[in-house]
C-alpha cells in the first residue's frame, strides 16, 4: 500500500471532517439545551459567511471579518431563539421543526435576495475580491512534504483552528460558571431554574454560540471553495448532522469524533474504491454507515439512551 497517499488522504479527511465537526458541535449545543434539531443551522452560518464576503469587499482584513461574521452569526442565532423558537416550543416539537425549516428557507432566500444567486466573488457583478477571503495561505505552492505526502498549509490551519475552537468550548463548558449553567440546563431544565439559573439567557446564548461556531465553518468552506453560493452550506449541514447523529446528539465530544470519522470515511472510501464509490457516492456511503449505527444504537455512538416514560 502506498503509505504517503494514505497519509495524505487521512490528513485531508481529518481536515474536511473538522469542518463537519464545527456544524455538528453547533447542532449538539442546541440539541442538548432544547432537544430540537436546528434545521437552519447551516443557513445561519451561510448568512454570516455572505457577511464575511461583504466585509472583505469593504476591505476589512479576513481575521477581523471572521470575528465580525461570528458576531453576526451570534445575533442571528440568539434573535431566532428569542423571537421564534422559544415561543413556538410551547406548542410542539413538530412546530419547532417546521419553524426551523421556515427559517432555513427564509435565510436562504434572504441571502439570494441581497447577494443574488450567483457564486461570489464575481467580477461580473462588481466584486473587488478575486476569491473568497482565505484564513490561511492557500496558493498552489503553499504546501510542504511530509513522509512523501504533500500537505497544504490550509488543511493544517483549518485543523488547528477547529482544535482551538473545540478546546475553547471545552474550557467554556467545564471550567466556567456559565458553562456549568449550560450543562445544568442540558441535564435538567427545571432543576436549573430552581437553582436560580436564568435558563432563558442560557438558551439564547446557546443558539447564538452555535450559529457563531457555524459561521467559522462557513468561512472555512468559502475559503476551500474560493467562493460562496446559495448551496454552499446545505451539504455541509447534512454532513454535520450526520456527524452529530453518529456521535450522539447530546455529546459534544461525540460530535467532534463523528465529524472527523465522517471526513475520513468519505475521503478513504472515495479514494480507495474509486471505481465503485468515487465522488458521486461518498455521501451515500457515509449515510449508510450512520443508518447502520442508528439501527444498532438508536442514540448514536456516544449518546445517552432516553427511557420513554408513559
Amino acid at each position: 500500500m502506498d503509505f504517503s497517499l494514505l497519509l495524505q488522504r487521512v490528513i485531508d479527511g481529518i481536515s474536511q471532517g473538522s469542518v463537519y465537526a464545527l456544524i455538528a458541535l453547533g447542532l449538539v449545543i442546541i440539541y442538548r439545551g432544547t432537544g430540537h434539531l436546528n434545521f437552519a443551522q447551516g443557513e445561519m452560518a451561510l448568512f454570516a459567511t455572505y457577511c464575511v464576503y461583504q466585509f472583505g469587499e469593504w476591505g476589512i482584513p479576513v481575521w477581523i471579518a471572521l470575528f465580525m461574521g461570528m458576531g453576526v452569526g451570534f445575533v442571528v442565532g440568539a434573535v431566532s431563539e428569542v423571537t421564534l423558537i422559544r415561543p413556538i416550543s410551547k406548542k410542539s416539537p413538530f412546530a419547532v421543526f417546521i419553524v426551523t425549516l421556515g427559517l432555513f428557507t427564509f435565510l436562504n432566500w434572504l441571502d439570494g435576495a441581497i447577494w443574488g444567486n450567483q457564486q461570489l466573488p464575481n467580477s461580473g457583478v462588481g466584486s473587488k475580491q478575486q476569491s473568497f477571503p482565505d484564513l490561511f495561505p492557500a496558493d498552489p505552492e503553499d504546501q510542504f512534504n511530509f513522509l512523501g505526502a504533500s500537505i497544504r498549509y490550509e488543511r493544517i490551519g483549518i485543523l488547528l483552528l477547529v482544535l482551538v475552537i473545540t478546546g475553547l468550548l471545552f474550557l467554556l463548558f467545564n471550567k466556567t460558571k456559565f458553562g456549568l449553567a449550560m450543562r445544568a440546563v442540558a441535564s435538567n431544565t427545571e432543576s436549573a431554574k430552581l437553582a436560580g439559573i436564568r435558563t432563558n439567557l442560557v438558551l439564547m446564548v446557546s443558539w447564538g454560540l452555535a450559529a457563531a461556531i457555524g459561521a467559522v465553518g462557513g468561512v472555512v468552506m468559502g475559503g476551500l471553495n474560493n467562493s460562496v453560493g446559495l448551496g454552499l452550506m446545505f451539504s455541509i449541514f447534512i454532513y454535520g448532522s450526520a456527524a452529530a447523529t453518529l456521535g450522539g446528539f447530546d455529546s459534544p465530544g461525540g460530535a467532534v469524533v463523528g465529524g472527523l470519522a465522517i471526513g475520513l470515511i468519505e475521503n478513504l472510501s472515495s479514494g480507495y474504491a474509486q471505481k465503485w464509490i468515487g465522488q458521486e457516492l461518498k455521501l451515500a456511503v457515509a449515510l449508510a454507515i450512520i443508518v447502520a449505527v442508528l439501527l444498532v444504537k438508536p442514540s448514536g455512538l456516544f449518546g445517552t439512551e432516553k427511557v420513554e416514560r408513559v
Partner: peptide, 10 residues
C-alpha cells in the same frame, strides 16, 4: 435580487 416566492412562503 431573486423572485420573492420562497421568502413569502417561509
Amino acid at each position: 435580487e431573486i423572485p420573492p416566492g420562497d421568502g413569502i412562503f417561509a
